[in-house]
């Protein structure tokens, strides 16, 4: 069997899914600063989504006594771990690791099998929605401190988790009905609505939730320190648009770009599907700190599309 980027990515996604969703049951714990939706509400998870940590740090007022000594250092330590993990892998966390990403990919697969047309994927719509993830990140940044200073009730301590469809969907994979029932009983009223929209959304749009994901926004803000880059040789690009059509986020900028070398746009997931489907030798490259992990090639792309 030939090793392809697609096979590597799919394997990575499944391995990550097992480790992050069930790792705790085998004693695996990747800590509290995982830069993807490793949901802490999944019983027996193998690591915890750092958005929980961020909310905890910003909502420190809930337990002011913990602001000194060991807890403070521990909180700062997790900030450091998060930055290091993000710096090392960038948005590989999104495209190759995130368990919620894999769940969304299953929905896309189902849509394709049924031959249903993707919606909400036009350039205009996506451009309009592109600030949404930053707005959600702002929501995470603003609400917990308001709890700290007493302007909001303590139920706003984890404002993002309370509206996160990951919290509603990922614990289902524990196959523990009793636990899920208890968890569901504590939901905000907004969560079922958000989850319903997400369920419909991810059927009709590839990686629907990623369009709004504050983790994606947070990782993108750390781009200056991340090692992963998507680079383009503009002279070799014919402009065919294969990259845009292969892109789960529908990024058209990679194809349209004529000047810039760096084409890692803010909604990019580093999944490398663009480079895989690019028919021009060396036009798109995925780099890790100046080392080329994958470079597009006509021969590679030609093997990519031979099955209906």
């Amino acid at each position: 069997m030939v090793i392809t980027v697609r096979r590597l990515r799919t394997t990575a996604q499944y391995v990550s899914f097992i480790v992050l969703m069930y790792g705790g049951r085998f004693g695996v714990n990747l800590g509290s600063a995982v830069p993807c939706f490793a949901c802490p509400f999944v019983r027996g998870c193998g690591g915890q989504c750092y958005l929980l940590g961020v909310q905890g740090v910003l909502g420190f007022g809930m337990n002011l006594e913990s602001l000194t000594g060991a807890p403070l250092f521990s909180a700062l330590g997790w900030v450091a771990v998060f930055i290091i993990l993000t710096a090392l892998l960038g948005k590989i966390w999104c495209g190759w690791v995130c368990p919620f990403g894999l769940v969304q990919d299953w929905f896309s697969l189902l849509r394709r099998k049924l031959g249903v047309r993707e919606r909400m994927a036009s350039e205009k719509t996506l451009r309009l929605l592109s600030p949404a993830k930053y707005i959600l990140l702002g929501y995470i940044a603003v609400l917990p401190p308001l709890v700290t200073v007493g302007l909001l009730p303590s139920s706003f301590y984890l404002p993002f988790c309370n509206i996160c469809p990951g919290k509603a969907l990922l614990p289902l994979f524990t196959l523990d009905g009793e636990y899920v029932a208890v968890l569901y009983s504590t939901f905000w009223t907004a969560l079922p609505a958000v989850t319903a929209i997400t369920l419909v959304g991810m059927f009709f749009k590839d990686r629907f939730f990623c369009v709004f994901c504050p983790m994606l926004a947070l990782i993108h803000l750390l781009k200056p320190v991340t090692a992963i880059r998507l680079l383009k040789d503009n002279d070799s690009c014919v402009g065919c648009g294969n990259c845009t059509r292969a892109c789960p986020m529908g990024i058209s900028g990679v194809s349209r770009e004529r000047e810039r070398f760096d084409v890692q746009f803010d909604s990019c997931l580093d999944c490398a599907r663009c480079a895989e489907s690019c028919p021009s030798d060396g036009a798109l490259r995925l780099n890790w700190h100046r080392r080329t992990l994958f470079s597009s090639s006509r021969l590679y792309a030609s093997r990519r599309f031979r099955k209906p």
């Binding site: 031959g115 047309r117 993707e118 059509r245 489907s277 006509r298 990519r304 599309f305």
Partner: peptide, 17 residues
């Protein structure tokens, strides 16, 4: 030209691709 990226499988998307 060849190599039409056609992961999308609806009729409309294939023609558009």
């Amino acid at each position: 030209p060849g190599g039409v990226s056609a992961d999308a499988a609806s009729e409309h998307e294939l023609v558009a691709a």
